[in-house]
Amino acid sequence: MAGIILGVIVAIIVILLIIIIATYNGLVGMRNQTKNAWAQIDVQLKRRYDLIPNLVETVKGYMQHERGTLEAVTNARNLAQSVASAGPGERAAAEGQLSSALARLLVVVENYPNLKANQNFLALQEELTGTENKIGFSRQFYNDSVLRFNNKIEMFPSNIIAGMTGFKQSEFFEVKAPEEREAPKVSFSAPPKS
C-alpha cells in the first residue's frame, strides 16, 4: 500500500519536473527568438544609417530649395544613431522621427522630375524603400515575438516558472511619432518643417 502511494507521488513529481523543464525551455527559446528578432531590426536600421548620407549627397544638387528637408533627415539620422545602443522604446522614438523625415523627403522628390530620371537616385530609392519595408517587417516579427513571449510570462501556469527563474517582459518596438502611424499623405503644397 505504502509502495503504491510512494510510486504515485514519485510519478507526480516526475511529471511536474518534465512540465517545468519543458516550460522553462520554451521560455528560453522564445526569449532567444525575441533577441534574434531584435538583432534583425538592428541590422536594417544600421543599413538605413548607411544609406542616408548617399541619398542626401545624390539629392543635394537637384534640390537647392529643400535645404530644410534635407537637414531634417540628416539630423534625425544622427540623433537616431546616437541612441543606437539604447533600449527598444527610446530607439523607436528616434527612428520614428527619422522615418517621417525620410517620408517627407520622398514626397518632396515628386516635384523634381530630373531627379526621378537619375539612375543613381532610382537605385537608391529602391534600396531605401526595401530597407524601410524590411524595418517594418522585422519590427512586425519582433513585436509578434514579444507579444507571445510576454503572454507566456503572464499566463498561468508558465507565469510561476517565469517568476521563479527571473524572466522579464520584453519591450515592444513601437513607433511613437504620431505622423509615422499614418501612411504619408501626398500633398505638394505642404511646407517642409524646421
Binding site: E126, E127, G130, F137
Partner: peptide, 16 residues
C-alpha cells in the same frame, strides 16, 4: 534585380 531581391528578403524577414 534589386526590387525582386528586396521583396524576397522582406518576406523572408516577415515570415521569420
Amino acid at each position: 534585380h534589386p526590387r525582386l531581391y528586396n521583396v524576397v528578403e522582406e518576406m523572408k524577414i516577415a515570415s521569420g
